[in-house]
Design a binder for these strands. Sequence first.
DNA 1: TGTACATCAGTGAACGCGCGTTCACTGATGTAC
DNA 2: TGTACATCAGTGAACGCGCGTTCACTGATGTAC
Lengths: 218, 218
Amino acid sequence: MAEQTGTPRQRYRAQVREEIKARAWAQIAEAGASALSLNAVAKQLGMTGPALYRYFAGRDELITELVTDAYRSLADAFAAAAAPGPDPVALARALRGWALADPHRYFLVYGTPVPGYQAPPETTAIAVEIMGHLLDACTARPADSQGGAPAEPLAAHLAERRDWAGDHPAPPAALATALRFWTRLHGVLSLELAGHFTGMGLDPDRLYDAETTALLAR
Amino acid sequence: MAEQTGTPRQRYRAQVREEIKARAWAQIAEAGASALSLNAVAKQLGMTGPALYRYFAGRDELITELVTDAYRSLADAFAAAAAPGPDPVALARALRGWALADPHRYFLVYGTPVPGYQAPPETTAIAVEIMGHLLDACTARPADSQGGAPAEPLAAHLAERRDWAGDHPAPPAALATALRFWTRLHGVLSLELAGHFTGMGLDPDRLYDAETTALLAR
DNA sequence: TGTACATCAGTGAACGCGCGTTCACTGATGTAC
DNA sequence: TGTACATCAGTGAACGCGCGTTCACTGATGTAC
């Protein structure tokens, strides 16, 4: 995983940084992001608290790095899912797989904003990358590939504001489909991960599949 | 608002309880639920920390009460929206109005679960009440009122598991529509409130309206 | 290959802070006669 | 109406705790000659 370049000391540094982040994730998984404590992470690594300041400027920088990594991991998951060819269903599965693999990672990115903290600027580029894969898949659909005038009002709005699409040449119909994809899958996912379907006695798997299918039936 | 019954002391107690909760909400709105501090709330009320223990057994009980109140307020908002008659659009507007009026209240109910804490049992009944209004509105739609065999696979699943609907006599088609309503609107809302559309340069209002319209076009 | 030096990971003590919670108490409010 | 008593809201001190962060330091690792 980690690059094997640089001096021994550099490699050691990189390795310890990764270990710190791994422990931090474990701690977040247990008690949520707001409970992340530098001292506790250090103790788990057999170090004292101040030692971590050799690797991160402070708690905020650590969290920032974790958020960026979380975004990055979703982008990678999408890239892997898109590798065989453009396929919305593969992306839908990848999104859910990514979310279920570590719910707290999902929440760190898409859940309740951490108060007083805002995502680092790099995440914008990664978000564009993520949506890029989705737009690829949608554009490849015959139903969305036409560049003609979109029948729905939403597409008109989207034709004006396409910053989120980067410089992707997707036609308005594909933009609309991609966005619907995004909001609807997150709708099921966020309720599922927050445990609301368990309380309702429903099977999230079926609901997610149903939404995916419905999206493509258009 | 508060009942004017009971002895003066009881009325005073109820009043102070309400004040404590109001301050707690303000604090949650500022820094999130995990930052809620009894001492800080007490200080804002011109009291010392231990005084709050006359009113709540501890921090957990206070949060539990806030969660219950949050659920209750949504149920009330739905009841008010449904008063003129069954109308899905009115409920959709009520949901968004409720969420935007106090995003942290939304997050307390539908956002990242507070670690180590789980919603009190009363909330289940309120959730059924909330879905009841939604089911009323959907059942009233001609498209969903038929009791015939549902065309979609989702409706089959829903016909089996209808605990979340309480004893509501909604036909499977209405169950499916209500659930779609619920997940799709939360999809837009949760992304909106977490600030993801701002980052994308999109107008959440338009997206929400589009989803509402699409849901009824069926 | 050996020695002198520089780098730097990690320690331990200390800083000030705020947290939830307990306890014995004061003093005001309400009640009973 | 007045007095004796009970109730109970709120205080102030104290408990132990963990937090993020700083600082001067030790001692191991790597580098230069």
